[in-house]
């Protein structure tokens, strides 16, 4: 394309451009972005009860929208995060929390992975040490092919 054409295209494109002043800087969707951020952080760990595995923050469901509004009110009123979560738990039970609370019935859930890691590591050590103590006759003939290791 000749340079002139490119210049013309640029000009046409610049004319199509919204004139400054016609469009304005878009307003934040929320009245108070700080409050909104806090609300999103709290609802991001709460389950929308009428949806299929979505957080209240992400959901478009009517209930979730109502709850988000309610939480904005609670934040405005000066409630702490803990108070809001307590309120939600009192109303909907532990089911609403994506971070299950630590209690007798969830101890296994929270400590299970650490327990498995300890058991796994211990089992690994025991197996390896037992192998070390075994006589050479217990093992198969060593056919180490070193080709892969040498450059």
């Amino acid at each position: 394309m000749p340079r002139g054409w490119a210049g013309l295209a640029m000009l046409v494109w610049a004319l199509c451009w919204p004139v400054p002043g016609l469009g304005k800087e878009a307003a934040p969707a929320a009245e108070d972005p700080v409050l909104e951020a806090r609300m999103v952080r709290i609802t991001g760990e709460l389950r929308c009860l009428v949806c299929q595995n979505q957080t209240i923050a992400d959901s478009h469901a009517g209930l979730a929208i109502d709850l988000r509004n309610q939480m904005r009110e609670m934040i405005k009123r000066g409630d702490t995060d803990a108070q809001i979560i307590d309120y939600m738990t009192a109303r909907y039970g532990d089911f609403v929390l994506y971070r299950p609370p630590l209690k007798a019935t969830t101890a296994l859930l929270w400590f299970g992975p650490m327990g498995m890691l300890l058991v796994g590591a211990a089992a690994l050590l025991i197996v390896l040490r037992r192998r070390q103590r075994m006589g050479a006759d217990k093992f198969e003939l060593d056919e180490l092919d070193t080709a892969e290791d040498k450059p």
Binding site: Y98, R99, P100, P113
Partner: peptide, 19 residues
């Protein structure tokens, strides 16, 4: 019948990253 709980991203992130 020991209650209904949800296990979500906060739990998995907590236990998964250290592993």
């Amino acid at each position: 019948n020991l209650g209904k709980i949800s296990v979500g991203p906060p739990y998995f992130d907590t236990v998964f990253v250290p592993l």
